[in-house]
Amino acid sequence: MRARVLIRPKAGILDPQGQAVERALPALGFTGVSEVHVGRLVELEVQDESQLPAMCERLLANPLIEEYEIQTGHTAAWGERASEEGTAA
C-alpha cells in the first residue's frame, strides 16, 4: 500500500518559511498569493495502513507543533512518478 503523509505547521504557530515564500513570490511577479505554508512530505510503502496514525503520532510528526494528513490508495511510488512525468535525472 502506497501512502503519503503531509505534515504542516499547526495553525497559529509562526511559520517563517511560509512567510519567506509568500514574500518572495510577488518579487517574481506572482501577485494575489496569501496563506503560504511550508511543510514536509513523507512517502511510504506500508503493509498495514492502520499503523499510519501511530507512526505519525510517534515519529513522523510532532503533534505539539505539527498537524498531519494521511493519503492512501492514489499515490504513485517515488521512482514510478518520476519516470512517468519525465523528471528523472
Binding site: I13, L14, P16, Q17, A20, N62, L64, I65
Partner: peptide, 8 residues
C-alpha cells in the same frame, strides 16, 4: 518543542 528560528 523547538522550532526553526523566526529569521530562518
Amino acid at each position: 518543542a523547538l522550532l526553526v528560528n523566526d529569521h530562518l
